[in-house]
Structure formats: C-alpha cells, structure tokens
C-alpha cells in the first residue's frame, strides 16, 4: 500500500473516532445543555423548588394581565402540552407579546406557579415586512 493511501485511511479513521466521540459527548449532554425547561418537561409532582431555573415557551393568547400596581405582570406559558402560570414584577422586553416566545428566569412555587425574576423574549426564525405580516395575520398563518 502506498504511504499516501495509508495516511488517508489513518486520517479517515481518526476523523471517524473524533466525530464519534463528539456525538457521544453531545448525546450525553442531552437535556443538561438545554437553555430552559418547557412546561411539558417539568414533572408536576417533582418541581425543581430548590434552585432557580428557566422556563420557556409561548405566551398563551389572552393570558397577559397587569396588576393594579402597574409593575406586576401575570401570564401563562404553554408548550402545547402543559401550562404554567407566571408572575413577573418589572419591565418586560419589547418583544414580549402574546402568542410569542418567552424565557422566564426564576423559581417554581410549591403550588406550581412560577415567580420570574427576569424575562427574555424569544422570537422565531420568521422575518417579514410589516405589511406582509399584517396580511398573513388575517389569514391566521402566523399562528402556524
């Protein structure tokens, strides 16, 4: 066998081993590398009460309520499988809207509610001009 081919086979074997190791590591990380829990990921009878977590999902349509104090927000985060009521005191990001993504940082309470210390808006991968969004909104296709 020519030395060149030997080196090629060696390089390919090494590449396969490295990619395999990378995939193993990534599959081992699985949920640990997730940025947030979706409501459906949270076990109802075993809430992570002892630590701060992030809860992410869609803000349920029609669920945003402003308290009389003017700074407290109440809304419901949903992922289609489960829902979690969230309370947040503070200034929400501009993109925080109903039917839009949100990531709340905070703690679960024993009764299943979530008290958020911080809100992040999460938008989807769709970008379009306002006129187009307006048209699509009427047909309901924006809601997927």
């Amino acid at each position: 066998m020519k030395a060149k081919n030997q080196r090629l086979i060696l390089a390919l074997l090494a590449l396969a081993a490295v990619i395999g190791a990378g995939l193993l590591a990534v599959s081992g990380l699985k949920q640990e590398a997730a940025f947030f829990y979706a409501p459906g990921d949270v076990p109802k009878d075993d809430l992570p009460l002892d630590r701060a977590v992030r809860l992410g999902g869609m803000v349920k349509a029609g669920s945003i309520r402003h308290d009389a104090d003017g700074v407290t927000l109440r809304f419901v985060v949903t992922d289609g499988k489960a829902e979690v009521p969230v309370t947040f005191k503070g200034i929400a990001p501009d993109l925080f809207k109903e039917n839009s993504g949100v990531v709340a940082e905070g703690r679960f309470q024993a009764d299943g509610r979530f008290i958020a210390a911080n809100l992040l808006a999460k938008h989807d991968e769709k970008y379009m001009p306002p006129e187009l969004a307006g048209k699509m909104h009427k047909t309901g296709s924006l809601k997927q």
């Binding site: 990534v26 590398a33 997730a34 940025f35 947030f36 829990y37 979706a38 992410g56 989807d124």
Partner: peptide, 10 residues
C-alpha cells in the same frame, strides 16, 4: 438539539 434562546435555522 437543545432548547435555546437563539431561534432555529431560517
């Protein structure tokens, strides 16, 4: 693969 703040591929 993971829940992320960054949106999916456009």
């Amino acid at each position: 693969w993971w829940n992320s703040l960054h949106q999916g591929p456009s």
